[in-house]
Simulated assay, not measured.
Amino acid sequence: MYDDILIPTDGSETIAETLAHGLPIAEHNDATVHSLYVVDSRVTAAATDETGAELESSLEDEGREAVADVAERAEHRGLEAATDVRKGTPSKAILEYADEHGIDLIVIGTRGKSPREKIASLGSVSERVVDNAEIPVFVVRDAGGTD
C-alpha cells in the first residue's frame, strides 16, 4: 500500500514518538523511509546579513544530523532510507518533496502547541501539511503536547 513514506523532522525530541509510529508502518509495507529537514527561510531571512549566513549554516548542519538520525533508525530496521535538507517554508517544502518523490504517506509529528504558540509561530506546520496534502497524512501528537 505504501512504497515511500516521508517522515519530516525538525531535529526536536518529538521525532522519537513520530518514528515509533512511522517505522512500523514502513516495515509492514517494506517502504523506503524518506527524511526531510527544512531550514526555515523565514527564520534566516529575519537575521542580519552577518548572522544570517552563520545561522543558515548552523541550521543546515543540524538538519543533516537530524535526517541522518532518522535514516540510521530506519536502516537499523532493515529499511531503505533517503535524506534531504532543503531551504524554504517548511509546510510547502514538505509537500513539494512529497510530490517530487512520489510519497504515498507523510508521517509528521506535532507538539500540540497552544493557540497562542500557534499564532506566535505563524501556525502549525503539521496543520498546513494536513490541510494541503493530496496524500494521506498520519499526525503523531507528542506525549508532552499542551492542547
Rank of each mutant, 00 (worst) to 15 (best):
D3H: 11
D4Y: 09
I5W: 07
I7S: 02
I7E: 06
T9K: 03
G11Y: 02
G11R: 06
S12W: 09
T14D: 15
T14C: 14
T18C: 14
L23D: 03
A26R: 01
A26F: 00
A26L: 02
N29P: 06
D30W: 05
A31H: 07
T32E: 11
T32D: 09
V33W: 01
V33C: 02
L36V: 00
L36N: 01
V39R: 06
S41N: 14
R42A: 14
R42H: 10
V43F: 13
V43W: 13
T44N: 07
T44H: 11
A46V: 04
A46K: 06
T48F: 12
T48C: 07
D49S: 12
T51P: 00
A53N: 13
A53Q: 12
A53G: 13
E56A: 15
E56P: 08
E56S: 15
S57E: 14
S57W: 06
L59H: 09
D61Q: 12
D61M: 06
D61T: 13
G63T: 00
G63W: 04
G63P: 05
E65M: 08
E65W: 05
A66S: 14
V67C: 14
D69N: 08
D69E: 14
D69A: 11
A71G: 09
E72L: 04
A74C: 07
E75L: 02
R77A: 01
R77L: 04
G78Q: 03
G78K: 03
A81F: 03
A81G: 11
A82Q: 15
T83N: 10
V85E: 05
R86H: 05
R86C: 03
R86W: 01
K87I: 09
K87T: 14
A93D: 01
Y97M: 12
Y97E: 08
D99T: 10
D99M: 04
I103N: 08
D104I: 05
I106D: 02
V107M: 10
G109C: 01
G109H: 01
T110Y: 07
K113P: 12
P115R: 05
R116W: 09
R116Y: 15
R116L: 15
I119N: 13
I119D: 14
A120L: 15
A120F: 11
A120N: 05
S121H: 10
G123N: 08
G123D: 09
S124V: 04
S126N: 10
S126V: 00
S126F: 07
E127K: 13
E127T: 11
E127V: 05
V129D: 12
V129S: 11
V130P: 03
V130G: 06
D131G: 13
N132Y: 10
N132R: 12
N132C: 07
E134H: 15
P136N: 08
P136S: 08
P136L: 01
V137Y: 00
F138A: 08
G145L: 09
